[in-house]
Design a protein around this nucleic acid. Sequence first.
RNA 1: GCCGCUGUGGUGGAAUAGGUAGACACAAGGGACUUAAAAUCCCUCGGGAGCAAUCCUGUGCCGGUUCAAGUCCGGCCAGCGGUACCA
Length: 810
Amino acid sequence: MKYDFTKIENKWQEKWETEKPFAALNDSDKEKYYVLIEFPYPSGDGLHVGHARPFTAMDVVARKRRMENYNVLYPMGFDAFGLPAENYAIVNKIHPAVITSERIKLFTRQLKRLGYSFDWDRCVDTTDPDYYKWTQWIFLKFFEKDLAYKALIPVNWCTSCHCVLANEEVVDGVCERCGSEVVRREKSQWMLRITKYAQRLIDDLDDVDYVERVKIQQRNWVGRSDGAEIHFKTTTGDEINVFTTRQDTLYGATYMVISPEHALLQKWDVENLEEIQAYQLASSKKSDFERTELVKEKTGVEVKGVRAINPVTNKEIPIFISDYVLATYGTGAIMAVPGHDARDWEFAKKFGLPIIEVVSGGDVKKEAYTDCETGTMVNSPLIDGLTVGEAKEKISNWLVEQKLGEEKINYKLRDWVFSRQRYWGEPIPIVHCDTCGFVAIPESELPLILPDIENYQTTETGESPLAALTDWINTTCPKCNGPAQRETDTMPQWAGSSWYYLRYADPKNNNALASKEALDYWTPVDWYNGGMEHTTLHLLYSRFWHKFLYDIGVVNTSEPYAKRTSQGMILGEDGQKMSKSRGNVLNPDDIIAEYGADTLRLYIMFIGDFEKTAPWSQTSVKGCKRFLDRVWNLTIANLGNNDAISPEASLDDASFSSEHETAVHRTIKKVGSDIENLKFNTAIASLMSLVNDFYNKAPNRADIKALLMLLSPFAPHISEELWELQRFDGCASEQEWPKYDESKTVDSNVVIAVQVMGKLRSTINVPLDSTDETVIDAATSDEKIARYIEGKEIMRKIVVKNKLINLIVK
RNA sequence: GCCGCUGUGGUGGAAUAGGUAGACACAAGGGACUUAAAAUCCCUCGGGAGCAAUCCUGUGCCGGUUCAAGUCCGGCCAGCGGUACCA
């Protein structure tokens, strides 16, 4: 009998399709377990082998959890709004909804061919009005709680997409999606007050099980810094606030730098206006990226005619504008302490400004002394002799007493620009009325359907294509019934993906985003796996939305995801990132056709450390196919009555063969713990070893049964087929996950390494848990060891139980 | 620049808590089977010396700690990812 993987895989996939054995139940007595992967954007290229890595890994986990008797929810959906579909629509004049629906069908078919145990009845699509109704509903709640607001802000403007990007979406000065130049422009935008949640987004990381690098990255992104805001008076009688984390160095503040965009510059009557304006113009043309790229050379212009007054020395100090001070962080102004800040030091050197040492320990003539752990304050009458820490506290108190400032916590995190001037997104359910201002549309009018249009091109002014629909725009104000205009901006793609995991709990609900019972039962997600690239955008955004929904009583957990892990990227065979332009993209369909889905699943798990990047190798795929062939042939060969146990008796749990007992127990232990620790590659390696053992010495039916159960999460089709051929009861996937006996995972004898002076010279075989004396005797009487210790004195004997002995001789 | 991660055979990668480096595979070479090929099965496989037993050497580089370092510490170098000159 040949391993006909195509036939077998079709057979089982059809069975799963009709019998739905992987459906999650909302009314189960079992304990729930919610496994989540990031839902894909249904791109025109179809499924990519890279998708298979996290999907397969979590499928393995989901299948194992079911065998551990959990009620498992492992859903799939589509994050289907977004630019590529819209750009395709512009070129081909096809409605994005049509393209999207086609692509979702393609993805679904491809995903089903991989044999994933998704509960397909819960599939969600963010572009479905029944879905985005609730995305809009959440937005209205944000608006109601004053967490959504419109503001005129400098934004990143993509010159090609004609749309605004969040700071987070600008990569290396260009648009993350289209790669075009991004310039700065002022625009009125809908914003979400994520900053209000900054502290909670940091604090609550303590309560979740995320891989450490994700936590670190999120903490750094939110970026709390503790310092003080200090009020500096100017010679014009104005006040400039600066934020500093080094209030202790106030005596060393010898000049001030404000951002070129600072509001006071318009008010002041500066002497060198032309020079200032030229600098402002130059920096406005620079993107943030270019401003930050100018690491080496500091530029700036002194604002002549106005000086600031250092509040502690009462000395006048010059004010500069420089683009290394950004308007968007802190107060847009800094006090410069060249003695103790590297950037300020460079700037001071270039402009010949005084550098005063206020913390001793370094040499400020040579470089800025920035150490704040060990220094002692000097040249600072109020705080001389204090440590930096003490000085910070004393200065802060002094500032408060003198009403010159206060302690302040600043976050790097900024509010989220939520508007997009694009068509293919959720319409923002707000109208603008001349008398009432911005007014929410009533909940009863949700979903606010995205209207059909003829032209998907963004308007020249950069407004959304919806701005051309006069009939749609003009409406009445829900408050005063007067004339009003609809908002024409749409939401970013992040909106739909910020809460999709909640919809899976109850995806067909028309009265709520999901029923309270379903949400209470399924949240939080027990294990969420996704890409590192989503750590600071999607993951942080959805944590923010979830916290908000918690605050308004929709969900009853403050965090959406109990555990977060991340997979590494799959590179092309050339070691480069897979991309259409490089021509190194692999389509899973081709691999399935040639080797089968089980081989693909096995290979993508065996490819290497799950958390690290790994290059694809077509030849290595064959190795996994070979392994499955070996499993097939072995099991078929053992179908007959060639073992001691009769077929009837062995249908029940029989004991493992004595030759393989230890190996089977060990493999059960290893595969189980490896899956939990994302070590899928070594789990498979141990299964390979077991099969090698079985080739050396024929297994009995119980041995085979264990093998098939352990293999089934990785290669479910072949496992089920062989299970059936073996006439075992039910399905492999319905079995209870095999248990192991710890005492049977160890041999009665162990091989111990014998080192002399730390070098391996021999090995000895002794009973497990032998005493040190026994091991020493065996080692010293070993013939290979004799020549190393002959005529020498053994000074020390280091014995590591069941592992090693090291003899130190002289 | 800053932050994070990673450097192990020809290749992908193994190596609980510092304890036999290279598991498991891929590729390559040799052999068996075959008219032949494929498939399958068996053997070899970090480098150097040696007929061999065996010895030396070896986890990016330089030091250190230790009886013992891929693993810990200090200092470098390279690659990848993130990035906001964040005061």
